[in-house]
Design a protein around this nucleic acid. Structure first.
Lengths: 151, 151
DNA sequence: AGTGAAAATGCCCGTGT
DNA sequence: ACACGGGCATTTTCACT
C-alpha cells in the first residue's frame, strides 16, 4: 500500500494524539470527519496502522530499570516459540529476532535491578533459552515513534 | 505517584487499545466509565501516561529495515553530546546509554538495507564515534507499550 | 449532509474510612 | 471531613443512510 501526503499527515496527527476527534484532524488536513475516518479505516485494513496505544512514562509507572537482553536459543527454536515464550512476561516491552550471534533481542522494563534480575533468571530458565547477555540502560537519550506489533 | 492494581490494569487495557471506551474498560476492571476516566485523568496529570498514539507498521510506511547499533565513543564524550549528535538523524527511533562495553545503543529505522548502510556510515563518521557494531532485525516478535515523549 | 446511537464529561450524591 | 465510586443528564462524537 502506498500512502499519499494526506495519509501521512493523518498518521502524524494521530501519532501526536490518538484520541483527537476525526473532525478535529479533518480541520487540520483539510477533510471532513467522515473522509478522515474512511482513510483511517483504510490504513487499519491495510495494516499501516496496527492499533492505538498509550504513551507511558516508565519511571512514573515505577519501571525504573530498562535493559536489553540478547537471547541465544537452542537449535530448532522457531521465532514463534520465542514469541510465545516471551509474551507471558509483562516486563517484556519488545522482542525481535536479529542477525549476528544472538537469536533475539529483548527489551525489558522492571521496577528495579532486583526485579530485573528475577525476570532474567526466569527467562534464562525457559526451555528454549541457552544463554543470555544483558546490558542495562543508564539513561534514555531519545525516544521517537512507536512501532507496531505483529499481533 | 503510586499505582495500585486498578491503575495498572487500566494502563494495560489502554496499551492494548487506546480507543476502547471507558465503559468497556470499566467492565473489565470492575469500575464505571466515569471512575475510569477520573483515574486516566489522574494518570495524565501525574505524567504516568503522557499521551495517546498510533501503533504504526514501519514496513507499511516504507521503513522496511530495522537495526540496533552499539556505539563505542571516544573518551570524554558526554551523554548529551551523543544525544545532540543523534537527534539530527530522523532514522534514529531511540537511543540510550548502556552498561557494558558499548557506550550507547541506538535503534534505527531505514527504508532498506542500502539506506541503513548510508545512515550507519554517517553516524560512524561523527566525531564522537570511535566504532559501531550493528545487528539487523529479522522479524519483530512482540511490541508493547510506548515509552517516552513525542518531542 | 443529517439523523439516531453511543460515548464522553461534568455534576451531585452515597458510602466507607 | 474527605477520598472515591456510582448514576444521571448534557454535550460531543460517531456511524449509517
Amino acid at each position: 500500500m502506498r500512502l499519499n501526503d494526506l495519509d501521512e499527515r493523518i498518521v502524524h496527527a494521530l501519532a501526536e494524539d490518538a484520541r483527537r476527534s476525526y473532525a478535529d484532524i479533518g480541520a487540520e488536513v483539510g477533510l471532513s470527519a467522515p473522509a478522515v475516518k474512511r482513510r483511517v479505516d483504510r490504513l487499519l485494513a491495510a495494516g499501516a496502522i496496527t492499533g492505538f496505544t498509550v504513551r507511558v512514562d516508565p519511571a512514573a509507572l515505577g519501571w525504573e530499570t530498562e535493559a536489553f537482553v540478547e537471547i541465544y536459543c537452542r537449535h530448532n527454536t522457531s521465532p514463534e516459540d520465542i514469541r510465545r515464550g516471551l509474551t507471558r512476561y509483562p516486563e517484556v516491552a519488545a522482542a525481535s529476532t536479529v542477525t549476528g550471534e544472538a537469536d533475539a533481542l529483548v527489551q525489558i522494563y522492571a521496577s528495579d535491578v532486583r526485579h530485573f534480575e528475577r525476570v532474567l533468571e526466569r527467562i534464562a530458565g525457559e526451555p528454549f533459552v541457552e544463554r543470555t547477555k544483558s546490558v542495562l540502560v543508564l539513561s534514555p537519550l531519545l525516544r521517537r515513534y512507536s512501532a507496531g506489533s505483529p499481533t
